[in-house]
Computed example of a mutant assay.
Amino acid sequence: MTTDDRFMPIHDPELLARGERVLGPEFRAMSERVLRATELTSRLNVLPFDDEAGRAALLEQILGRPLRAGVTVYPPFYTDHGLRLDLAERVFVNQGCTFLDYAGIRLGRGVMVGPKATFITVGHPVDPGERRRFLSGAPIDVAENVWIGAGATILPGVSIGRDAVVAAGTTVADDVPVASLVAGPKGTVRRRW
């Protein structure tokens, strides 16, 4: 997030990805997209599991582009925006995952995401007087061949290095080094290889 405390209207999601704040008409536009994404994911999540073509078609609408080769997403699947979620080739997303992606989430080639993992790119200020006035956030970047364990939570602005593992139930608030294991209630590097 920016260290500048001035309110800065956002004219596009790229500014939020750089740590700016969402206000006014931009917030209304974001809210409309949230309603559309919720409608699409609701439809996705009630399809028969073997309807792979229907699932792929709805995911393409949610993401705003065709799925890349080898991408697998098992419902239920939740996103608040969808258009800023970038899934590279061979990404696997297990059941019950949530992607709050307005500030941008990139999952690199071969990333595996365990069930009920949550990725959050936006939030509210701590100050109660500002809490309902704007959103702030930062993108999440997950490099190639990362494994995110079941129930992990990845917070705004985090980068996870290639070949890293995030243990089940871990909350990740800081960057994760390449080829490392993070674990615990607040992700702590436990091992490097």
Rank of each mutant, 00 (worst) to 15 (best):
T3F: 10
D5A: 03
D5S: 07
M8L: 07
I10P: 00
D12M: 02
P13A: 11
E20Y: 14
R21A: 10
V22K: 02
V22S: 02
V22M: 13
F27E: 05
R28H: 14
A29V: 13
E32H: 15
E32P: 10
R33F: 05
R33V: 04
V34H: 07
T38S: 14
E39V: 14
E39D: 15
L40V: 09
L40M: 12
T41N: 09
S42N: 12
R43V: 06
L44W: 03
N45R: 04
N45K: 07
N45S: 08
F49H: 11
D51Y: 00
E52V: 13
A53W: 01
G54T: 13
L58Q: 01
E60G: 11
Q61I: 03
G70H: 01
G70M: 03
V71F: 01
Y74C: 00
Y78M: 01
Y78D: 02
D80M: 07
H81V: 03
H81C: 14
L85T: 01
L87C: 08
L87E: 04
A88G: 03
A88V: 01
E89H: 05
E89M: 02
V93N: 03
N94R: 01
N94E: 04
G96K: 05
G96A: 04
C97W: 02
C97L: 07
T98S: 15
Y102P: 08
Y102L: 15
G104M: 13
R106N: 03
R106W: 07
G108R: 06
G108N: 10
G110E: 12
G110P: 12
V111H: 09
M112R: 12
G114F: 10
V122S: 11
V122T: 15
H124I: 08
P128C: 07
G129S: 13
R131T: 13
R132W: 00
R132H: 10
F134E: 03
S136D: 05
A138C: 03
P139W: 11
A143W: 03
N145F: 08
W147L: 08
G149P: 05
G149M: 05
A150L: 10
G151Y: 09
L155C: 15
P156Y: 06
R162C: 13
R162P: 10
A164M: 09
V165Y: 00
V166I: 15
A167H: 04
G169L: 06
A173K: 06
D174Q: 14
D175M: 04
V176K: 06
V182H: 04
A183Q: 11
G184R: 07
K186Q: 13
R191A: 15
